[in-house]
């Protein structure tokens, strides 16, 4: 899998290398994870602006704290007026996590938490996007640590010209993904079960 993603990324880099310099500069910024996303084309395909997009989470470890994933990407196809034809496929490089504390950052890669050696990425793949009163809801599958669960990402969308900004999130229960599987974390004494995941994505069509 790793070898595959490396070769895909290499292929992507070579492909971009023959394109304009601007594109190849963008390709260098693109990580191996981006190569794992489906290549989609056509109308209402949005390219995420990594510099203007943020993936954060709020969890509780002796108090609420905010963490970030600095490395993630998404293949997005979404017509704001016909969301049911759209799709979202997001991937997160878990090693880019920063939970704001050296103890947390030291433990999160370990088997008890994300087990990043075996499961370096997390993904969200939508299967149904619909309009809601507040904005949009993307129902789909969230996969973390080799476990796939149904999840719904709710977001609002603001489109200005060819730029779209989606703000939203979802709440998960860390037990559903075996995050903190040892006895120390089997209850909420140290780390509470709910984790709020927040996205603030800027993309261009």
């Amino acid at each position: 899998m790793r070898l595959l993603s490396i070769s895909l990324a290499a292929a992507a880099l070579i492909a971009c290398g023959s394109a304009s310099t601007e594109l190849s500069a963008q390709a260098q910024d693109t990580s191996l994870i981006s190569a794992e996303l489906p290549q989609i084309t056509g109308e209402y395909v949005w390219t995420m602006d990594k510099k203007k997009s943020a993936l954060t989470f709020v969890a509780n470890h002796g108090g609420d704290f905010t963490g970030t994933f600095s490395h993630f990407d998404a293949a997005i196809k979404l017509n704001p007026n016909a969301p049911e034809d759209g799709s979202i496929h997001a991937i997160v490089d878990l090693s880019s996590i920063d939970a704001g504390d050296s103890d947390r950052n030291a433990n999160l890669p370990l088997a008890d938490w994300f087990d990043m050696k075996l499961y370096p990425t997390a993904t969200f793949i939508s299967n149904e996007i619909s309009k809601t009163d507040a904005g949009y809801a993307a129902g789909g599958t969230l996969s973390i640590k080799g476990i796939s669960q149904d999840a719904t990402l709710s977001f609002t969308l603001t489109v200005t010209g060819n730029t779209a900004r989606a703000i939203g999130g979802l709440t998960l229960d860390r037990r559903d993904f075996k995050l903190g599987e040892s006895a120390d974390f089997a209850n909420e004494d140290w780390v509470k079960f709910p984790v709020i995941v927040k996205v603030d994505i800027t993309a261009r069509s």
Partner: peptide, 8 residues
């Protein structure tokens, strides 16, 4: 030094 979790 051997405990899981790892606490600095």
């Amino acid at each position: 030094s051997v405990s899981t979790p790892k606490i600095g």
